[in-house]
Nucleic acid binder design. Structure first.
Lengths: 234, 234, 234, 234
DNA sequence: TATGAATGAGGCTTCATTCAT
DNA sequence: AATGAATGAAGCCTCATTCAT
């Protein structure tokens, strides 16, 4: 049940969500799929090589179209990049939020659930690549970086902060500074996501990170560290 | 005592004469200092913009020399990059190792000490920038990535694994898988280092990460989670 | 019938559409013709200025295209140069060989014929420029020099040696060392070819060489010198 | 007695004439020799690689001085080149002229003597390299080309023309067009000189030209072809 | 809509030349 | 006089973008 964390499942979920074009169901020609294919190609290449080192012709080729066609859909390389980032974020936050609101168990359980969700989305999906490319390019695209912060990082963060706060308020967690605790909480997964798309994808890289092991140790340690009353309770 | 973690202390270390301060009347004859100045300039720019997006002329200009001068010291942009990575790693691992070997207290204390050391080196020093740039460029420079793994990541990792093992053997820590535990242990700091050089350096970035708070929460949670017998502290 | 030997008939052969004449309204879609146009431009400029002193953009401009277009067809200036040399040699040797094999007259006549052929090809055609450029660049492109030796010089030489040998064997020529005799035989023409593309092409050059006069004197002297029995012509 | 004609005796006579600086005899420091050393280095390198492909630093290095020093003696690369050409021509023509004027034998003998002289000077001396480089660069340096024509080519040519004319007038030679005959006469040697510094200097070049054999065949054929009365005379 | 030939601004690198020592 | 670090114009080449088909 433990899977080493090396070659990211790049090919598997080509787009983050199969975003179901305007008329999903009847597949016309291919034209309707073009933007998605281009974004998927862009994602794979930008993540692999970085923005500047990726040639737009490569993206087109990977999407199976010619150089010129790319420009029918995106006005420039930069627009393609921005579209890719905006597109591949999609709805996961919304989903997680919905899940959290309906949740009725303990905060401990909710935390575990959310972290698993996060990993399932970021670790198992090409969306994780967005994290790497944003980390690499944030300073070159401040506007995008802020978009990413507003749409992804801060909402996720706030959601987890809220859970921690609720847990503390309920006496379930020890009183810790929630912001810092959230950083501690998500870091291992974030690290694995980034590793997956950098060192982990190098041909000769060293010992792979065992994602499942890290996740379970992380939950174990964190919850042990967070829980208020020593285990004698319950 | 808590310092927000945003504009990285770019200029601080890396042995960089403030490039030709007010007393810079002589504009030649710097042969000895030039390599360091160029490496410092390269570090700042490669970290900020990435390898491909940095023009070699920019590096030269930042080092206070002209385009051509750069090539008197480094045969190509790529050689400059490699030299920079190799140069900026220095001896921190060796230092940490020496410290660990002489240490006589508990593993809990040693762990805290090592993490603080790591942060002092990577978080407060331009060396942290190397982490960001390596993460961004690992797949473009596999040879360098392996150098970095061999010289930095793996030795650090092994050292911490050894401490965890010793702690477990001594009954000080609960039996946890050491490799995974180390990932959990260093992730928050790694995350902060990367953040510092990406989102944290964006002009408009959101709420800063409070490094000291994260570090103390991290130690608190981790050690609480690691410690073996619930010290009957009810 | 005697033509002074100065400005080489640069434009004449080498299959070069007069680059976009008056009817050049379409400025694109020349894919088939481009390689020839580029090679012709390269030939003219490399012969005129030498390899190193010719800028690739000049070649492109002379071919009526832009800098970048050149690189769609040839990967580098060096590749362009090599392609040009290889291209401009063509089949003359094969033709001469065929002619020699079918020839039924005396060796004296064959020799005269072959030399005229050689001059017609090298002296009246842009191919002669290749001789100059190869002489100038042989030491910078040893591989190409050997190609030229193998494909042009040595076959031509061997063919003439064979004729001399046959003439000697038939008692038509005096017994002379055939290799040296061939050198003597072709030198005047070679000299004129080189002159044509060097001094002869200088605006202010001195008295032109009269090619036809040289050729006829050359035949006269050579054959007089070669012929075996003093035909008793007193 | 026959020597193959491949690696030109580059090193042997460094300068064409050991030009005996102002105070030859007492050798001061080195300074007086510097210009000669630089010219010799320039000759070797320009002949080997051509003007444009030779870096001025290479010339300086070969002369055993630094880059800057070169510019103390010659204002620019072009001036160095011109000085080299002008310098390495020197007095041979004058010498040959003197010899011809004092000569008292037959024109046949004088012709043989002059050709041997020419070969001794151009074929055995670095001066031959000037021929190659002038052929290669004539169109880039028209002024130099004219200098070369005026100082070397035309005087030599005229001298030989005069001999031919005298021979014809004396009934010693058949009446041939003297200009063309001279071309025929010197071509083989010119060819060998050029070959020596181009194909002949390539590492893998084909069969070497046997200079002595060519020269003797050349004299044999030429004189046979030139001589007026068939050999029955004498 | 799709193509891919063509363009040309711009980056990397070289090297002739300068100049402080 | 000699040095060699420094300069920057200029050349090679790439690649984002355009546009005729």
């Amino acid at each position: 049940m433990s899977r080493p964390l090396s070659p990211p499942p790049d090919a598997a979920p080509v787009a983050c969500d199969p975003p179901a074009g305007p008329s999903a169901g009847t597949r016309r020609r291919r034209k309707e799929a073009r933007p998605q294919e281009l974004l998927a190609a862009a994602l794979a290449l930008f993540v692999e090589k970085g923005y500047a080192a990726t040639r737009s012709e490569e993206v087109a080729a990977r999407a199976g179209v010619s150089k010129g066609t790319l420009y029918l859909y995106y006005a420039s390389k930069e627009e393609l990049f921005k579209a890719m980032v905006r597109e591949c974020l999609g709805s996961p936050i919304a989903e997680a939020r919905a899940m959290a609101e309906q949740f009725e168990g303990s905060m401990t359980e909710l935390l575990a659930l959310l972290l698993k969700e996060w990993w399932a989305h970021m670790g198992q999906t090409a969306a994780g690549g967005i994290c790497k490319i944003m980390m690499a390019e944030a300073r070159n695209f401040p506007e995008l970086a802020n978009f990413f912060l507003d749409e992804v990082i801060n909402p996720s963060h706030e959601q987890l902060v809220a859970v921690i706060r609720r847990g503390i308020a309920a006496g379930e967690f020890r009183p810790v500074p929630p912001d810092a605790a959230v950083q501690v909480l998500i870091s291992p997964m974030l690290h694995m996501v980034l590793h997956q798309h950098s060192f982990g994808a190098c041909p000769l890289h060293g010992p792979a990170i065992d994602a499942d092991a890290v996740l379970s140790v992380q939950l174990d340690l964190m919850l042990n560290g967070l829980l208020a009353a020593p285990q004698s309770k319950n």
